[in-house]
Nucleic acid binder design. Structure first.
Lengths: 199, 199
DNA sequence: GGCCGTCGATTGACTGGTCAATCAGTCGGC
DNA sequence: GCCGACTGATTGACCAGTCAATCGACGGCC
């Protein structure tokens, strides 16, 4: 029987990387910082990962694929379009609530850094936009949404609004308590579906 | 009288920096790239700027202060809150239309890089959010906007939606023609004020 | 049981290359 | 001959990635 190591050093390195990247940012962290934080020798990082970049890649892919499945799964339910958008917003907000450091790294270093890192992952990022756009489009076909707004536009606005809220929490621009998180989920949907003007 | 050089080398360096930063990103550009692009000796960059960072700083501050004045100026007009938001959206979109490279640099390297660079400029960035929030708040007091959405939340959603659209153009996720720009201005306001659901 | 060889996990000193920033000096106008 | 604009070679720090060496678990063999 193959021996399962008592501690999974690979995982240990990834978790340490989340903390260090969140604290110092990707560019400012040296590989030795990750190794130190993980309590592991420098060279071991290179035993498990080809490069510093690959560590970040791994973190992103791991998490983003969850997001993609969640959106596409939601779309398959029989809920109303509005409820679907609500579920997507809730998933993203809860991801942040559950692991703020990881979400910070993903947003700051990948999603919003489409120049350097995000470039590699543009296809996956775009796929999320498109899945949301599909929800909007179906909503339009069903008459639940106005059809004079291009679905992709609506999708980008919706996702942009959420990501901006996360950024706000990440950088302490707006308060971040459990209540705020729950309110945010609702308010984003209200704003996007009902608008700011009174009905 | 102080001599005005026939060509303003300082300006020349800043303009070159915009192009190079937009092309390669801040981290990937060497100071020698800027000097080459500007057709100027390496050392001259350090004659006018204390560091590579200061070049980016200068670019950001120069442009962001225009944005801040524009928002605050708009707020002083007697327009409806909805029109004010429209004017803000129009200003940002037109800034991109007018100088996409500069806006790309500002968004990618500062606004969305609040970890590294943006950190320094958080106060100015926050001030923009707050100015927009004020427009929303006044709208609520006047009964033009529903008052169950915190102004700062609405502001972040609104700004986030716009910035996401710019990102979409910057990274070719969505088409970017003059028509698209004009539509975007309207659609963002429609979405945020009227909502996606039919009235 | 005791011994040994294998192999993956683990270590950390070292190297090679990259650049930001410096600085000693040239040039040209006044 | 002074002063600020301008030049570009040089330096010094930094750090990703390499690599040779060590460790230790396991299985086979006598």
């Amino acid at each position: 029987m193959a021996k399962a190591p008592p501690v999974d050093k690979r995982r240990q390195i990834l978790d340490a990387a989340i903390r260090v990247f969140a604290r110092q940012g990707f560019h400012a962290t040296r590989v030795s910082d990750i190794a130190d934080e993980a309590g592991v020798a420098y060279g071991l990082v290179y035993h498990y990962f080809r490069s510093k970049d690959e560590v970040l890649n791994e973190l992103f892919v791991e998490r983003w694929s969850l997001l993609l499945s969640a959106i596409e799964e939601t779309d398959r339910t029989g809920e109303t379009p509005r409820e679907k958008l609500g579920a997507v917003a809730a998933f993203i907000v809860d991801s942040y609530r559950h692991d703020p450091e990881l979400m910070k790294v993903i947003i700051v270093e990948v999603t919003r850094a489409a120049n350097s890192f995000g470039r590699t992952h543009l296809p996956e990022i775009r796929r999320a936009y498109q899945s949301i756009a599909k929800i909007v489009e179906d909503g339009q076909k069903a008459g639940a949404f106005r059809d004079d707004v291009a679905p992709m536009f609506a999708s980008m606005s919706f996702y942009g609004a959420i990501e901006q809220l996360l950024s706000g929490w990440i950088f302490d621009v707006i308060p971040a308590s459990d209540t705020d998180f729950d309110q945010a989920k609702e308010l984003v949907v209200t704003t996007i579906c009902d608008g700011l003007e009174p009905r």
